[in-house]
Design a binder for these strands. Sequence first.
DNA 1: CGTTCTTTTGACCATCTGGTCAAACCAAGA
DNA 2: TCTTGGTTTGACCAGATGGTCAAAAGAACG
Lengths: 200, 200
Amino acid sequence: MTKPPTRIQKRNQAAILSAGLEIFSQYGFRGTTLDQIADAAGLSKPNLLYYFPSKEAIHTALLERLLENWLDPLKALNSDGDPVREIIAYAHRKLALSKGYPRESRLFANEILQGAPRIENILHNDLKQLVDEKAAVIKGWADAGKIAPVDPYHLIFSIWALTQHYADFDVQVRAVLPDSDPYKGAATYLDHVISRILQP
Amino acid sequence: MTKPPTRIQKRNQAAILSAGLEIFSQYGFRGTTLDQIADAAGLSKPNLLYYFPSKEAIHTALLERLLENWLDPLKALNSDGDPVREIIAYAHRKLALSKGYPRESRLFANEILQGAPRIENILHNDLKQLVDEKAAVIKGWADAGKIAPVDPYHLIFSIWALTQHYADFDVQVRAVLPDSDPYKGAATYLDHVISRILQP
DNA sequence: CGTTCTTTTGACCATCTGGTCAAACCAAGA
DNA sequence: TCTTGGTTTGACCAGATGGTCAAAAGAACG
C-alpha cells in the first residue's frame, strides 16, 4: 500500500538524484559529502535526509537507475542482423551513451575503480551472462567467416574502452584536442576502427 | 645543503609511498584517510606525518613520480622509424605499463575522473605539446600514404583507451573474462586492432 | 477556517579525520 | 659510555561529517 509520490516529493527526489549524480560521479562515494549534495540540490541536509534515509541510499538509487539502461546497447545486438552492421551499431549506441550521459559513465567508472564493492555480484552475474551470450554470437560470426577471427571478449572490451574513454577522461581529451567537440571526430574514427577490425 | 636520507628514512618513505599508492589508487584523494595509509605502511599516524608534512604531500609525491614515466612511451615514438611498427610498439609499451603498473594507472584515472585539479596544467602544457608533436608526425605518415588516413588525435586516444582499460577496469575485465590472465589475449588483440586500423 | 498530513529547519550529537606537540625512545659515532 | 640527532608515540585538538529529533511551517482539503 505505497502512496503515490506527491508533486513536491517528485521534484525534490529528482533534484537530489541529479545533484548526487553530479557530485558522486566526480568525487566518488567517500569523497562526496551530504552537504555538497544538499547544496547542489538546494535543500538543507536534514531535508535531504527526509527523502533518502542515508548517503548510501542516494548512491544505491543512482547506481540502480544507471544499471537499468547500462546493458541495453549490448542486449540489442541482434544475432540475426548483419554482423558488421550490428557491431558498429552497438559501438555507436555506446558512444551515444557516453555523450548523452557522461556523469553516469563516470559514476560507473568510479565504482569499478574502487573495486566495484556495490555491484560486484551484478558484474559476475548479469553482465557476465550477457557478455557470454553475445560473445558466443560474435564467435559464431567469426567462425562462419563473416567477420575477422577476433577474440569476442576483447572486441567487446575494446568497444567499451573506446567509447567510455570520451566520457571518463573528458578533461584529458579536451585538454589535448584542438577541436571543441570531441564526439564529432570520435564517431567517424570509431566507424573506421570497428569496420577495420572486423573486415574478414 | 640537504642531508642524504638515512637508511630508516629511505625504508619508511618507500613504505609510505607504496601504501599511499595502494589506497589512493583505489579510493581517490578524498576517499583515502591517513589512518589507512599509516596502517598499510605499518606506521603510526604521527610517525607518517614525520616523513610527509601532509596527506596532500604524499599524493603529490605519488603523482609526480607517476608523471615522470607516464609520457615516456609516447616520447619514444620515432618519426624516422617504420610507421606501423612504431605505432604498434607504442601501443605495446602502453599495455606493458598497464600490466606492470596498474595502481599507477588507476591513480591517474582517479585524478582525471575528478577533473584533474592537480595536474590540469600538465595536461594543457606538457601533455598537449607532446601529443601535438606526435600527432603531427602521425599526420605526416598518413598524408604520405604510409598509414591509413586517420585522425591522429583519436588514434592516440584509442591507444590510451585500449591499453589503460585493462588496468583501470580490471575488476570488470576479470569478472567477465573466463581466462585467468587478461593481458595474454589483450596483446594479441591489440596487435590485430592497431595493424588493421593503420593499414593504408 | 480548521484539521490533518507533509515538508522544512535549527539545534544537536557521536564519530571521524587531518594535523600538532611535547616527551620518550633509539641508533650511532666519539 | 655518553652524547647527539634522528625516530616514534600517546594524548590531544579543531573542524568536518553522517545522521537525529522535536518543533515549526506549509500544503491540502473538507
